[in-house]
């Protein structure tokens, strides 16, 4: 095959390849191969870093069987690449920041347990981090959406938000005042709640679970 033929010769062919063509070739490389190419030269490092990385899911999930050792899961979209590892909390958070800090990274779904948020928030605050842009953020597992989560959310920019767990009324009132809430296009709160429907009227998509819906609330939503 051609790769066997070409293996024995060195020609400056890659250097002469136009950037737009290199960009297409790079998209066909797996994440590992891109990392290997990145190590070849300064130009290739620049080319690879410039290429957007589309992450379908980035999650830090608390594992019941391994406390303080969350599972970091990354699913890169096209070419498909998965990475999953259970690490000590500090290491997992460090890896998390490496990923969200990559140039041109685009994250579709960010899944976080409430458990990791205080540490993430402290580090975001300490490092004066820019906003982390994601398509959808999902706060997972049983827990309470408290003030710490509220402060953390201010470091995010998202279009959709999935909030599991209870939200205290005063925290919800603060949440709906945030820029992030106003800019959100979709919200899903799977736990039973009686939050005011008026706060959701700006959204394009809404999924709420309620024990009862008054006629007035129904009319307002319609």
């Amino acid at each position: 095959m051609s790769d066997q033929v070409g293996f024995n010769k060195i020609q400056p062919i890659w250097q002469e390849t136009p950037d737009n063509v290199k960009g297409i070739i790079l998209q066909y490389l797996s994440y590992t191969d891109r990392c290997n190419l990145r190590r070849c030269s300064k130009n290739d490092k620049f080319s690879v870093d410039r290429l957007p990385i589309y992450i379908k899911e980035l999650s830090l999930k608390d594992m019941n069987e391994t406390p303080y050792r969350p599972r970091l899961f990354v699913h890169i979209r096209r070419p498909n690449h998965y990475h999953s590892s259970i690490q000590p909390l500090q290491c997992a958070v460090k890896s998390f920041f490496k990923i969200v800090g990559l140039p041109n990274v685009k994250i579709e779904l960010l899944v976080l347990d409430y458990y990791e948020i205080p540490l993430l928030h402290d580090l975001l605050h300490m490092r004066k981090w820019r906003q982390i842009a994601v398509e959808t953020v999902h706060f997972k597992k049983h827990g309470v959406f408290d003030e710490c989560v509220l402060n953390f959310i201010k470091h995010l920019s998202f279009r959709k938000c999935i909030i599991e767990g209870d939200i205290l009324p005063n925290i919800f009132n603060a949440l709906i005042g945030t820029e992030q809430w106003r800019n959100a296009q979709g919200v899903h709160i799977p736990h039973i709640n009686q939050l005011e429907v008026d706060s959701f009227l700006h959204l394009n998509s809404l999924r709420l679970r309620r024990e009862r819906l008054t006629a007035d609330d129904g009319m307002t939503l319609i």
């Binding site: 070739i25 490389l29 190419l37």
Partner: peptide, 28 residues
């Protein structure tokens, strides 16, 4: 581009330099 991309599969940086004809920074 797909054929060229396939050539890079599971190759080390050193092998990639040979396949794609990439000089090292010093050579460059």
């Amino acid at each position: 581009c797909r054929v060229i991309g396939d050539m890079a599969k599971d190759k080390t940086p050193e092998e990639l330099r040979i396949i794609y004809g990439i000089p090292t920074d010093a050579e460059d």
